[in-house]
Write a protein that binds this DNA or RNA. Structure first.
Length: 804
RNA sequence: GCGGGUGUGGCGGAAUUGGCAGACGCGCUAGACUUAGGAUCUAGUGUCUUCGGACGUGGGGGUUCGACUCCCUCCACCCGCACCA
């Protein structure tokens, strides 16, 4: 008979909730472990089978840690602001709040049915005013410190929809909804100065226990590069510009300069002869979408301005061109072009027949750019030097002459923080009629979103909030009129600090009690999808560092250890999608196989970080294992098996039990769930072969199983005669001495090939082993007539005989 | 192009420091029990084989008594970035 998963899962889920089994004590005396999941966006589609993968991993970890005597913080919440709810509201006229609430209820039900050991008293919802009060509070602090500022930046403006679109809503230059044209239009936007933290975000990666790939992605994203800024004067004008370069040592090889099309100097320096050509080019460039300008830019385009810059090193005239291979958003938007030693400049110079001058020996600049190190030539005081030395010397010279300076530039740009949307945290700023601007004072937070009967674009590019009376404010003291900021925060905002609120979720006075944060931070293990490798994790680190600077949090970094779970693919090894019809619904699996089986299966599929295809047969196999466990311990009539005995003396299971405890404990600690589970299967297979099973081993095994499949474990625990939950019973320990047998089997190799095996005492000496191996009958036969040249003995493992 | 990663049976995957390749699961084969089996149990299952053995961890080379593991080189696939000066 198999166990009734529907019955026991319901039973234990109810028990855990009613008993508040997993309530964490914030100020406990115990050592603390904080195990965190990336909280989900509660979409209308409900839970995906990918969600439980990471959640099960942290749940296993949490459950094991509780049994090992730690106080465990394992919370869950909802990242509930975001676009889909607003789209839905636009489409149906319903309120995003109600829609979100419904979705959360579904998610919560589904998550609870999977038996995760969350402390539900700490549930967080980013759309709850009690929560976003603090999101807004952090913003006002950023504003106070000058890290939040308004800037004019181009956004995706869709005239037909009367709204600004996010990058992901623009497909091939058209709006995702409706296919209307989208143009780049400069608008005033809130920006966060994440670049002020670039160096620290880079440096502090070193101390984190994160996958190297993620660290690398963040490093690339930040894109620090060292070089120099060099000032160029313009022949015949009282103007100059600076260019950033990582190779100031090649200044003598700079034969032309290039400005980005958006560079402010362009219109000032263009000569009348070139005016027409330049305007035509600029027109052509603005029509290109971002995609066309970056992705498809294989062929270089550009136009001469007619003006010349002066090379500060040799006073040569360098023609100034405009080309869209130079980006206004990086460096200074202007470059000195050294075609002999830069591939892009080489390509451009070749196309437009600009001079190419070799200044570093080692390549053939008539064929291609030479970008490696070499001896400098044609470079006056740099001649004979190599790259590093030449760079240092050139920078010294530039600084002495006042023509340039050492400079570090980042690829990372400031964070565009405003969205022209309703369904987000209102930015707590008031614009007064006298032109001044103030933050909403702390005591007036949260600044709540007004309820609106209809959410539609304002048409002006402002958010729908512009249509509400809510925007109008009057200063009670002075009577001055003001207008609220209508932009809201992006979805990233709420997720930048939610892990702090989990520590002290109901604190009305503070974001969280500093004492409590000291207890729990940093997060010990953080698991989620790799899609958040850069943005979420970088933004959260940025906010955390800022909060550290203003004394709110005690650690420099929020997440000590990070792990990315892999994707679960459809049975055909393709990404699950509605259109392919290969989506697996966790509700159906919970109903047919049970949550314990789903959890077990997802952990057994393969390594946690691998992308593995779903397999119905594999799922059946997981269920079969749980059935085997049940049948081994429980008889048809529901009573304990007669095989279970009270002794542990000398049973056949001694070794495998201790091995299992050891391997499972170590594997779970390292998140190697697939191999830990396989060891449990080995134990059960041995259990079937054994005549008797000591009760202590059954109890130990059930504990090992309990983090993975907690419902069946609780049920078995009860059958074993316990009246309390298994969740806090001590984790099994193993006896190292039980792992080694007195006799071990070793292999005998000849020339590295296994030829025979023999049993030897575990304490045998090298000499004895060699002797015994050479005396072996089969070995004697095989080495007959050969000279034994060497014998390698690895105690307890093997003997390798070199003979020919 | 740059950065990171992965290549092991029919499939998912194991394999401490270089030391018995293929644990465990799926699938498959045979048998048992059964009216029945998509249940359960038992045994087998890398390939080839003249049944001695030979070959085998993406290909080629190297180091070593011994290589899935270390080195060189090439190939394939996946992820990220992509004119970042």
């Amino acid at each position: 008979m198999s166990f009734n998963h529907q019955e026991i899962e319901k039973k234990w889920q109810t028990y855990w909730l009613e008993q508040k089994t997993f309530k964490a004590d914030t100020y406990s005396e115990k050592e603390k472990v904080y195990a965190l999941d990336m909280f989900p966006y509660p979409s209308g589609a409900g839970l995906h089978v990918g969600h439980p993968e990471g959640y099960t991993a942290t749940d296993i970890f949490s459950r094991m840690k509780r049994m090992q005597g730690y106080e465990v913080l394992h919370p869950m919440g909802w990242d509930a602001f975001g676009l889909p709810a607003e789209q839905y509201a636009l489409d149906t006229g319903n309120s995003p709040a109600a829609f979100t609430e419904k979705n959360i209820a579904t998610f919560k039900r589904q998550i609870q049915e999977l038996g995760f050991s969350y402390d539900w008293d700490r549930e967080i919802n980013t759309t709850d005013p009690n929560y976003y009060k603090w999101t807004q509070w952090i913003f006002t602090k950023l504003y106070e410190k000058g890290l939040a500022y308004i800037d004019e930046v181009p956004v995706n403006w869709c005239p037909a929809l009367g709204t600004v679109l996010a990058n992901e809503e623009v497909i091939d230059g058209k709006s995702e909804r409706g296919g209307h044209p989208v143009i780049r239009k400069p608008m005033k936007q809130w920006m966060l100065k994440i670049t002020a933290y670039a160096d620290r975000l880079l440096e502090d990666l070193e101390e984190l226990d994160w996958p190297e790939s993620i660290k690398d992605m963040q490093r690339n994203w930040i894109g620090r590069s060292e070089g120099a800024e060099i000032t160029f004067s313009i022949d015949g004008y009282d103007e100059e510009f600076t260019a950033f370069t990582t190779r100031p040592d090649t200044l003598y090889g700079a034969t032309y300069a290039v400005l980005a099309p958006e560079h402010p100097l362009v219109e000032k320096i263009v000569t009348s002869e070139q005016k027409e050509a330049v305007e035509a080019y600029l027109d052509q460039v603005t029509k290109k979408s971002e995609l066309e300008r970056t992705d498809l830019a294989k062929d270089k385009t550009g136009v001469f301005t007619g003006a010349y810059a002066i090379n500060p090193a040799n006073q040569e005239k360098m023609p100034i061109w405009i080309a869209d291979y130079v980006l206004m958003t990086y460096g200074t938007g202007a470059i000195m072009a050294v075609p002999a030693h830069d591939e892009r400049d080489y390509e451009f110079a070749t196309k437009f027949e600009l001079p190419i001058l070799e200044v570093v020996k080692g390549g053939d600049v008539s064929k291609e750019a030479f970008t490696e190190d070499g001896e400098h030539v044609n470079s006056d005081f740099l001649n004979g030097l190599y790259k590093d030395e030449a760079i240092t010397k050139m920078i010294e010279w530039l600084e002495a002459e006042g023509k340039g300076t050492k400079k570090v530039t980042y690829r990372l740009r400031d964070w565009l923080f405003s969205r022209q949307r309703y369904w987000g945290e209102p930015i707590p700023i008031i614009h007064w009629e006298d032109g001044s601007m103030t933050a909403v004072p702390e005591e007036e937070l949260p600044l709540e979103l007004p309820e609106m009967t209809e959410i539609k674009p304002s048409g002006t590019g402002e958010s729908p909030l512009a249509n509400s009376e809510w925007v109008n404010v009057v200063d009670e003291k002075t009577g001055m009129k003001g207008r609220r900021e209508t932009n809201t925060m992006p979805q990233w905002a709420g997720s930048c600090w939610y892990f702090l609120r989990f520590v002290d979720p109901h604190n009305p006075e503070k974001l969280a009690d500093p004492e409590a944060l000291k207890e729990w931070l940093p997060v010990d293990i953080y698991i989620g999808g790799a899609e958040h490798a850069v943005l979420h994790l970088l933004y959260a680190r940025f906010w955390h560092k800022f909060l550290y600077d203003i004394g709110v949090v005690p650690t420099k970094e929020p997440f000590q250890k990070l792990f990315n779970q892999g994707m679960i693919l459809g049975e055909g090894n393709e990404k699950m999608s509605k259109s392919k019809g290969n989506v697996v619904n966790p509700d159906e699996i919970v109903a047919s196989h049970g949550a314990d089986t789903l959890r077990l299966y997802e952990m057994f599929m393969g390594p946690l970080d691998a992308a593995v295809a779903w397999s119905t047969n594999g799922l059946d196999g997981a269920r079969r294992f749980l059935d085997r466990v049940w049948r081994l311990f429980v008889q048809e009539d529901g009573t304990l098996s007669d095989k279970i005995v009270d002794t542990t003396e000398d049973t056949a299971l001694n070794k495998v039990y201790h091995e299992t405890v050891k391997k499972v404990t170590e594997d779970f600690e390292n998140l190697h769930f697939n191999t830990g589970i396989s060891q449990m299967m080995v134990f059960i297979n041995e259990g079937y072969k054994a005549e008797v099973i000591p009760k202590a081993y059954v109890e130990g095994f059930v504990k090992l199983l309990s983090p993975v499949s907690p419902h069946i474990a609780e049920e078995l625990w009860e059958k074993l005669g316990h009246t309390n939950t298994i969740s806090y019973d001590a984790w099994p320990t193993y006896d190292e001495s039980k792992l080694v047998e007195d006799e071990v089997e070793v292999v005998i190799q000849i020339m590295g090939k296994v030829r025979a095996k023999m049993n030897v005492s575990k304490d045998i000496t090298k000499e004895e082993m060699e002797e015994k191996a050479l005396a072996n009958e089969k070995i004697q036969e095989l080495i007959e007539g050969k000279t034994v040249r060497k014998v390698i003995v690895v105690p307890g493992k093997l003997v390798n005989i070199v003979a020919n």
